[in-house]
């Protein structure tokens, strides 16, 4: 993809995200935003929908109130959407895990496993963030620093899944609509959180706290991609939309 213009001679197009990965990215985004909003409501029901005279003195009161108890069911809907979002996140997590190792295009593990010069490359990128000098060259694949941070983010998602399932399975009594294996599996995979985080209340608080880490990640992620687009002029922000970015290396050899 050589450009004939001499000024842009070194610019190349790099394919970074396949259609599948872009779909994953945006459904992940939607599901996480959905779960943050509904999760906030479940942790601390900030809107009151049962209107009573003494409870009707705040702005938020009665926004969606339909009157009688049997007509409202706002918490039911919040939990329902939280669970739907959770299912989407779970599926995406496992797809991500699969792609991280078996993707034809770009297995993520190649970028983050700290072998060879990957750690050093990540360190150079970090130094670049603070000195703006010595930009590591853009490669065919994701840079190691991003790969490490994305992996850490997915570990947070995993923890969120485990603590979430522990709270979910709390209302099960031994069996479920799909059989006894389902609660068994959830208990088997998540009961350790009770020991580590101190009972179900602790698990709840950890779930709440990790949400904040995820929010921080989202803000960081958007910032750093915008920053890269502005500083490097390689169109990093376009990756999740079109799948491509540019490569603008000094040597142009890549």
């Amino acid at each position: 993809m050589q450009n004939k213009n001499s000024k842009y001679a070194e610019i190349q197009l790099v394919h970074r995200m396949t259609v599948i990965k872009r779909i994953i990215h945006w459904s992940f985004f939607a599901a996480i935003i959905n779960n943050i909003i509904t999760g906030f409501y479940i942790a601390y029901p900030f809107l009151i929908f049962g209107k009573t005279p003494t409870q009707a003195d705040s702005l938020s009161t009665g926004v969606l109130n339909s009157g009688e108890t049997y007509q409202a069911f706002i918490m039911t809907w919040m939990r329902e959407f939280h669970f739907i979002g959770a299912v989407i996140i779970d599926v995406i997590f496992f797809v991500w895990l699969y792609l991280a190792f078996f993707s034809w295009k770009e297995p993520l593990y190649k970028s983050f496993i700290p072998f060879g010069d990957k750690m050093e490359e990540a360190w150079r990128m970090l130094k670049h963030y603070f000195t703006l000098k010595d930009r590591p060259e853009t490669g065919k694949y994701q840079d190691p620093l991003n790969a490490i941070i994305f992996t850490f983010f997915h570990l947070l998602i995993l923890l969120q899944m485990l603590t979430g399932f522990q709270m979910y399975v709390a209302s099960f009594t031994g069996t479920s609509a799909v059989g006894a294996w389902w609660p068994w599996l959830l208990h088997f995979s998540t009961d350790w959180t009770l020991v580590v985080f101190g009972g179900l209340t602790g698990v709840t608080l950890v779930h709440l706290f990790i949400m904040w880490l995820i929010i921080i990640f989202i803000v960081y992620h958007i910032y750093i991609e915008v920053w890269r687009s502005v500083m490097w002029k390689e169109g990093d922000i376009l990756i999740p939309f079109g799948g491509y970015k540019y490569m603008r290396n000094k040597s142009g050899s890549e």
Binding site: I48, T54, M75
Partner: peptide, 24 residues
């Protein structure tokens, strides 16, 4: 049922408490 409906006691002795809303 009041939990699911989003009807909560917000203060001891408020109308929600009188109507036996959820104590979440």
């Amino acid at each position: 049922g009041h939990f699911e409906a989003g009807e909560y006691v917000r203060q001891w002795g408020d109308d929600g408490a009188k109507k036996q809303y959820c104590l979440y």
